[in-house]
Design a binder for these strands. Structure first.
Length: 259
DNA sequence: CCGGATGTTCACCT
DNA sequence: GAGGTGAACATCCG
């Protein structure tokens, strides 16, 4: 997905629909509607409801209404279109084509305008009243003390724990690799071997990574991104990067300075 | 043609 | 329960 930086861009783009009233709903894909709801329930329940706010926790976007909360997940290739336009035209690993056949969910509003979720690979989803409590604290706001709790009581690999949305919400594959690169910590370190100063370094690196990549324009603008390939070299010291599977995801890191 | 890509969930192991 | 693995979803790119 879009990781949290992209979802935040989507959230911002959706702000203009706050205050509008939903007129019609399109949910053509049953598989895309999660959490035990059915497309027909959405189509019945949402028209007439007014949008109160658009929020985000981690990678989950939440549209508050005076009825149910609408939860939007973007998977890896989901984009938002608001009143016909989108904040991100080109998405890494998605399609440059722009086929309305990939519209998995759409709201139309009284007086005009729309909010559309366009998702080629269909990895995202819609859920009414999603359980927000299952998510860990948002990576953008979590403080050092809470972050220490995230990284405690487990022998799991560091990267696997950082990707666990129930422990800390918002980080994806690219953001984690870049923050670990900056923090100079190896992704396969068991969480319970991290020293207190390393955890502090990770927290600082996470915040810097989010700020810098946010400014640059997204999760794909990390320092590791240009060399994220077989045979890539560390921008810091020129060492050939290691490539491996950590936490079930392809991972690149520098074997020299990330320890 | 094949493998792999910003993700999540579920089944099935140990 | 914790943790690992592989499959599933569908499309594009090298």
């Amino acid at each position: 997905m879009p990781e949290m930086l992209e979802v935040e861009a989507y959230r911002l783009a959706a702000e203009p629909v706050v205050g509008r009233t939903i007129s019609t709903v399109s949910a053509p894909d049953q598989w895309y509607v999660k959490g035990g709801s059915t497309p027909s329930q959405l189509v019945e329940m949402l028209p007439g409801k007014r949008v109160i706010a658009v929020r985000r926790v981690g990678k989950l976007m939440l549209v508050d209404t005076d009825g149910p909360v609408i939860g939007l997940r973007y998977g890896m290739t989901g984009r938002i279109l608001v009143d016909g336009g989108g904040p991100i035209d080109r998405l890494e690993y998605s399609s440059d084509r722009n086929d309305p056949a990939w519209d998995r969910f759409a709201l139309s509003f009284e007086g005009g305008g729309s909010l559309v979720l366009r998702d080629p690979r269909r990895l995202g989803g819609i859920e009414l009243d999603p359980d927000e409590d299952r998510l860990g604290p948002d990576a953008g706001v979590v403080g050092l003390a809470a972050f220490r709790k995230v990284l405690s009581g487990s022998s799991l690999a560091l990267k696997a724990r950082l990707l666990d949305q129930n422990k800390i919400a918002g980080l994806g594959n690219l953001l984690v690799d870049d923050m670990l690169y900056r923090a100079a910590v190896a992704p396969d370190r068991p969480v319970n071997t991290l020293a207190a100063d390393e955890v502090a370094r990770l927290h600082k690196a996470m915040r810097r990574t989010l700020a810098i990549l946010g400014r640059r324009g997204g999760s794909h603008t990390g320092d590791l991104q240009p060399v994220r390939m077989r045979g890539g070299h560390c921008p810091k010291d020129g060492t050939e990067l290691r490539r491996g599977d950590v936490g079930g995801r392809t991972t690149y890191w520098c074997p020299l300075h990330q320890t």
